[in-house]
Amino acid sequence: MNELLKVNDVTVWRGDNLLLDDVHFALNAGQVLQVRGANGSGKTTLLRIVCGVGFADEGSVQWRGESIERNRHQLNNELLYLGHKPGIKGALNPIENLRIFCALSGLEASTKTDDLIKNALANLSLSDKAELPCRFLSAGQQRRVALARLLLQHAYLWVLDEPLTSLDKAGLAWVENQISQHVSNGGAVLLTTHAPLQVKGVTVNTLEL
């Protein structure tokens, strides 16, 4: 099978110092790639460039063999990006927030989608908070609302920027289980995390920055 994601010679300068120096890797279906590095070593920048949110000074990113500047639409349909910021509106409650993400990925708002959302939240033991505006939730709970998107959106490539921050042990186990399920049925995951990751049944290759 051809390479899903190919990043070649991505270089990013910040003024005169080199943040990313000729970063080069490929990611195929059924693989997990963990990007490791100290704080400020450009992990987030690299992930944002892969998603097409950030721009690189040199180098290119290919999705299914074509540069992402040309097939941005296809990439966006098959990508799920969880960044540092939760991407959740504080004024709205979890259900409303997740309805937006479902609509953005093509699931029209309907009772069926609402049920999907409800049991996704239940799966993350958030069902009692479903009606509460998100600004009243703790950082960990907001992170769980964002993680609920992993169940709802059928994206091919997961790009997760430190998904485990402010999660408790149960949350950690949940994420690892989701990743192994996603990878086993042909998905790919690119993530950065400080906590060591044990994903059952999958080899986690790492990229040092």
Partner: peptide, 21 residues
């Protein structure tokens, strides 16, 4: 700047110029 950069990134491929890519 270019002198400082020359020492700092001596190992970078020397003929790399930005507009090639």
């Amino acid at each position: 700047r270019s002198k400082a950069l020359a020492q700092k990134h001596a190992q970078r491929r020397s003929n790399k110029t930005t507009e090639q890519s």
